[in-house]
Design a binder for these strands. Structure first.
Length: 501
DNA sequence: GTAGGGTTAG
C-alpha cells in the first residue's frame, strides 16, 4: 500500500501509513524504504526517514535503499552527501551509478557527471538508456559535441532503441552543440515521437534562428495529432521573436488560450514581451507587463531593459532598472546593459555613476569566457588570456585579424567597455575579448574552410558580433557561436540572428 | 516485489 501511494505520487498518504505502521510496532523492511524515500523527496521529509535508517543500520544496508538515498540527497541539493553515500556503498549497479550521475546533472555539475560516467565505463558497469539520457543532457549543456557524438555512436553500435525520451535528449544535444542538420536527421528517422521530441525540435530550430522551419514543424506536429503543451508554445513564440515575425507571434500568443486551453505562464509573457520589445513596440510591451495577471519578475524587466537598449529608449530603461535594483540587485548583466545604454547616448556621467554603483556594492562583471573544441580537447579563454600553450600564434593571428578588419572599415565599439581606461586600453581590451581569442585559435588550429564553433558563457558582445561577421567573410569561414541565449551562424559577413539578439 | 530519465523566456 505504501508503495502504491508513493508510485502514484500520493506522498502524504504514503507517509501517514508508514507512521501508522510504526505505531503498531511494525518495522518497515528494506523493500519499503525506496518507496518511502520516493514519497519523501516530494515532501522534503527524506531526512526523517534517513535518520531512522541511521538508527537501524541493517535497514538501510541493501543496494535499493542506498540507491534511493543517493537519489533523494541529490534531488534536494545535498550532492556532497549523496556522493558520500554512493562512495560508501559496498555494491553498486547501473541504477546506483545512474542515480549519482543524474544528481550531478540536476545540480548543473555537468563536468562531474561526465567524469563519473568515465569512471563507470572504466569499472565496466553496464550502461542503459537512463544513463545515456543524463550523459547527453550534460553534453548539451556543456556543448561537448565529441562526447555527444560518441554517445550517438554507442546507441547505434549497441542497437539501443531510440525511445522518445532518449531521442529528445539526443536531438537537444545536437541542437545545443550547433548541429541543426544532425538534430533534424535524428528527428526524421524516429518511429515513435512524443510531445517532448517535437518540443526539442521546435525549440532547437527557434534557438538557431530558423523561425519558418520551426513553425513548419509546429504545423506538422498538429497534423500528426500530437497536442501542443505549454513548452511547445515557448518554442513557437521564441521562433517568432528571433525571426522578427511579430504578427505571427501575437497570433500564437492569443491562440494558446483560445484554441488549446493553455493559460500563458510567466515564461510565455516573457516571450511575448521580448517579441514586442525587440520589434520596437516598447510601449505595448510595457503595457502588457503592467496589465498581465502575474507580477513581472526580473527576467521580464531584464527583457524590457534589453529592448530599450536595442532601440535606445533611456526613459523606459530607467523605469525597468528601478525594478531590477529591487528584484535582482546582484545581477551584473543589468548594470552593464544600463551603462551601455547611457554610453550609446553619450551620457558619460551616468556611465560613471553606474560603474561606481557596482563598485560600491562589490558587484563584479562576470568574466566572459569562450571555449572551442579542437581534436577532442576543449580550449577555454578569458579576456586577455595568455595561458594557452599556443598563445603566441593566437596573438599573431589577432594582429593579422586587426589589420584586415581595419582595411574593411571596422571601427571598434569602445563605448561598450566598462573599464576605467583610456581609448587605447579599451581598444586593446576589445581586441582580446574571449570570443576573439577562441576564434583566432580556431583560425590557426583548423584547416581552411573548416567551420569554427565557439561556446560563450555570456551574451554576444556587440563589438565581437560585428567583428565576427567580418571575419567570416575575410577568412571565408563559417563561424558558429553559441552564446548564453541562442546561436549565431556567421557566414559571408552576415549572421543568422539578423543582428537581433 | 525493489532504485534512475528528456524538452522551458532574456
Amino acid at each position: 500500500m505504501i508503495r502504491a501511494y508513493a508510485l502514484n505520487g500520493i506522498c502524504e498518504e504514503s507517509l501517514k501509513l508508514y507512521i501508522q505502521m510504526q505505531y503498531q510496532g511494525l518495522q518497515p523492511d528494506n523493500f519499503t524504504y525506496p518507496f518511502l524515500l520516493k514519497a519523501c523527496t516530494d515532501l522534503n521529509q527524506g531526512k526523517v526517514v534517513h535518520s531512522l535508517i541511521l538508527k537501524n543500520p541493517s535497514l538501510g544496508s541493501d543496494i535499493y535503499s542506498q540507491t534511493s538515498l543517493v537519489g533523494f540527497y541529490s534531488s534536494c541539493g545535498d550532492i556532497e552527501y549523496a556522493r558520500s553515500v554512493f562512495d560508501k556503498m559496498p555494491d553498486r549497479n547501473v541504477v546506483s551509478w545512474t542515480a549519482m550521475i543524474t544528481g550531478y546533472v540536476k545540480q548543473r555539475r555537468y563536468n562531474e557527471g561526465l567524469a563519473l560516467f568515465h569512471k563507470m565505463q572504466i569499472e565496466g558497469i553496464e550502461i542503459n538508456e537512463f544513463t545515456l539520457v543524463n550523459v547527453l543532457s550534460a553534453c548539451a549543456h556543456l556543448g561537448a559535441f565529441e562526447m555527444g557524438k560518441w554517445v550517438h555512436g554507442y546507441i547505434n553500435r549497441n542497437r539501443v532503441f531510440l525511445n522518445p525520451t532518449l531521442a529528445t535528449a539526443l536531438i537537444d544535444m545536437y541542437f545545443k552543440c550547433g548541429y541543426v542538420d544532425k538534430a533534424s536527421q535524428v528527428f526524421d528517422k524516429l518511429t515513435e515521437r512524443s510531445v517532448c521530441t517535437w518540443n526539442s525540435t521546435i525549440g532547437g530550430l527557434a534557438m538557431h534562428g530558423y523561425g519558418e522551419e520551426a513553425l513548419e514543424r509546429f504545423k506538422q506536429m498538429r497534423m500528426s495529432g500530437t497536442k501542443p503543451d505549454h513548452i511547445t508554445f515557448i518554442g513557437v513564440l521564441s521562433a517568432c521573436t528571433h525571426s522578427g515575425m511579430v504578427e505571427k507571434g501575437r497570433e500564437c500568443f492569443y491562440s494558446m488560450t483560445r484554441d488549446y486551453g493553455i493559460e500563458p505562464n510567466i515564461k510565455h509573457y516573457g516571450c511575448f514581451v521580448d517579441l514586442l520589445g525587440r520589434a520596437g513596440h516598447l510601449e505595448e510591451a510595457y503595457e502588457i507587463m503592467k496589465n498581465m495577471p502575474i507580477k513581472p519578475n526580473g527576467v521580464l524587466w531584464g527583457t524590457l531593459l534589453n529592448a530599450c537598449s536595442t532601440h535606445g529608449n533611456v526613459e523606459l530603461a530607467e523605469i525597468a532598472m528601478e525594478q531590477l535594483i529591487e528584484l535582482e540587485p546582484f545581477n551584473d548583466g543589468n548594470y552593464v546593459i544600463m551603462s551601455n545604454i547611457y554610453a550609446a547616448k553619450g551620457q558619460w556621467e551616468n556611465v560613471v555613476r553606474m560603474r561606481r554603483f557596482m563598485n560600491d556594492r562589490g558587484i563584479l562583471k562576470t568574466p566572459g569566457c569562450s571555449s572551442i573544441e579542437v581534436n577532442n580537447v576543449i580550449h577555454e579563454f578569458v579576456v586577455g588570456d595568455s595561458r594557452h600553450p599556443h598563445s603566441k600564434e593566437i596573438y599573431t593571428m589577432l594582429n593579422d585579424v586587426a589589420v584586415r578588419l581595419k582595411a574593411v572599415g571596422y571601427v571598434p565599439k569602445t563605448s561598450q567597455v566598462l573599464l576605467d581606461a583610456n581609448e587605447e586600453e579599451k581598444r586593446q581590451s576589445l581586441c582580446h575579448h574571449s570570443e576573439k581569442l577562441a576564434i583566432a585559435f580556431g583560425l590557426v588550429s583548423t584547416g581552411p574552410k573548416t567551420s569554427i564553433r565557439v561556446v560563450k558563457n555570456l551574451r554576444a558582445c556587440s563589438d565581437c558580433h560585428l567583428a565576427t561577421k567580418l571575419i567570416s567573410k575575410i577568412y571565408d569561414r563559417e563561424i558558429i557561436v553559441r552564446d548564453r541565449n541562442l546561436f549565431h551562424h556567421f557566414k559571408d559577413g552576415d549572421c543568422s540572428c539578423k543582428d537581433y539578439w
